[in-house]
Nucleic acid binder design. Structure first.
Lengths: 334, 334
DNA sequence: TAAAAAAATGGTTACGTAACCATTTAACTA
DNA sequence: TAGTTAAATGGTTACGTAACCATTTTTTTA
């Protein structure tokens, strides 16, 4: 491996000067600069990022802990986070969390000297939050938040759940299923609370049989689908806590011979891109802003890093309904 | 920042012993081990990965250069690559390439001491290949390959193009559009060659007006869609070089009021998961193996790293047709 | 129980870089 | 032109770790 010392010897200057050519060329005379650059090219020198990080205690790297990509929401946020960071001179270390490998991920992150952390995978009462704060590394949560309400960029989850559910009521749906993930996560908790609120405001009674809260893997959702099928009184509409869930349920229903929305109405939350596809046309609730949550969060994080201050970011984006074609209007009952 | 020296002092042992407790605990007596571990916990010590990489000249890290996630193919390969690597003790540094930011990506990769590189973004005649070989770092290409036919895991692209096109012919389609990316990429070249071969074998003449080769961004594909619309003789079927293209074209067609496959048949290549969704049901060609190309490639790469040898991996996976519902059988003309 | 072997621990060093301070060289200034 | 200041370059060090070799302690063996 060619080091700056090798370059220095080859060019007949000191290692210090090589370092200057690489990092602060304006401090170096033109002929010296050319001499050193020639040596760098000749020897194919590439600075060692590890050594640099060691001495500088920073890495121009941000760690991203994203949810799994089978949820298209994270496909979009990951893309926009990576792109924005790169445009601003930061590299991104992406980690995909399934909420089980969190421990390893944090080890990996803290071992490298990342300049910041942007993450979604956090529980409302997650003890890891304290660890993050103690580490002193700037960080921000996107999508989900922690119960202590610090450093997050989220959508108005309760309002989202409310809007989705209320929209179903407005189209005369009464028998509504809720399918969502564990309420230990702020997204699911907020959205479910909104769902409940809509029932209250519409003077409707919750039927516990129609509430499905559990893991959101394909297998689990299929079990849920089967349970819904077995209900004596089937729902006319499904309120899914995320578009990913909604799209998966659509798949089950259509594969089983049902028609959406004629046989069953489905609404999601997130306003994911693939839901806008003409073949899917998922009615959903999402943020009004054209910029996604990941992008908003990474902007804030980079500002925190560059300005070396750590304000408490608290952003709750407003949401609105996106009417598309997976909901049908029911006839009013007598 | 707490270092191993701090731990050593606190525990009353040498730094060397701390290092041993962390890396080779069997070389350390039980009471010493406990003493040091207590100190580690107490002081919240985390080894510095940069310093470690510096001295060890390795990082247990593999760089992944993936195509953009708006292509669902890369969503799946990225997921399986990251998961498999993590299961085997490697971290993954993901980079998303748009074939333009390649330079920066390579800089970033070579600055850190990655143990291996797995990449898709390479052109047939890419000069970067030589750079890779010279670096001495084990690497493997997945999806695409280089003209020199070294170190790749691909599908049988020509056969894929052939099967897709021949299937259209077998259902009496004559007016077939090809929509694909630049043939500087082995995938597009191979698939297009297969397309041509199918025309030959079916004694059909290529109509240059119906060949669209260019960038595969949404905007470009929309321009292509408009051009197809303006053709005096419209195609009855579209052979898309990738599922991503096919799914995008479906969106344009359906949004414009067409029905797929009644008004236009569409076939893709890749057998991407979202294409299997009941709302899309994209007929396509994909590898017969249930394990995706990324997964196959990362397995090989990790073997190369662990066994410290660099065999020339050349894998071309067999493909087959996946009949679904975006193709209609045409009536035979008189 | 003394000698030999094995196990456990410690001391010193290199890894490649940038920070820091020292020195030399060039450019002004009076 | 000497004196002063600024610009350019060099020398030395620390960063935190594991490799390597040296030393001490323990265990085994005769």
């Amino acid at each position: 491996m060619v080091s700056s010392k090798d370059v220095a010897k080859y060019a007949g200057v000191s290692q210090t000067t090589v370092s200057r050519v690489v990092n602060t060329p304006h401090l170096v005379k033109e002929p010296t600069y050319r001499k050193v650059m020639a040596a760098i090219d000749e020897l194919n020198y590439i600075p060692d990022g590890n050594a640099r990080s060691l001495v500088q205690k920073k890495s121009d790297t941000i760690a991203l802990i994203s949810g799994p990509l089978y949820n298209p929401f994270f496909v979009e946020t990951t893309t926009s986070i990576v792109n924005y960071a790169n445009e601003n001179g930061f590299k991104i270390n992406v980690h995909f969390s399934n909420d089980e490998n969190i421990e390893e991920i944090y080890n990996a992150i803290f071992e490298k000297k990342v300049d910041g952390i942007i993450l979604s995978s956090v529980l409302l009462e997650d003890p890891v939050f304290e660890k993050l704060e103690k580490s002193g590394i700037p960080f921000i949560l996107y999508n989900r938040k922690h119960e202590n309400n610090k450093n997050f960029v989220e959508m108005d989850n309760e309002q989202a759940g409310y809007l989705a559910t209320d929209y179903l009521f407005s189209l005369n749906h009464k028998e509504i299923c809720w399918i969502g993930g564990p309420t230990e996560m702020s997204t699911f908790k907020g959205r479910y609370d909104g769902f409940l609120k809509a029932f209250q405001q519409n003077n409707a009674a919750i039927n516990p049989e129609k509430i499905f809260i559990g893991k959101t893997s394909k297998e689990n959702l299929y079990q849920t689908f089967l349970k819904v099928e077995e209900l004596s009184e089937k729902p006319t509409a499904i309120c899914a806590a995320t578009d990913a869930i909604a799209i998966q349920m659509m798949d089950f229903y259509i594969s089983a011979g049902y028609k959406v929305p004629e046989d069953i109405s489905i609404i999601g939350i997130d306003n994911v891109k693939i839901g806008q596809h003409a073949s899917i046309n998922l009615t959903t609730v999402g943020i009004s802003s054209p910029i996604d949550l990941g992008r908003i969060a990474i902007e804030k994080l980079i500002k925190m890093i560059q300005q070396q201050n750590k304000p408490c970011v608290q952003i709750t984006e407003a949401v609105r309904l996106f009417e598309r074609k997976t909901i049908i209007k029911k006839k009013k009952e007598a």
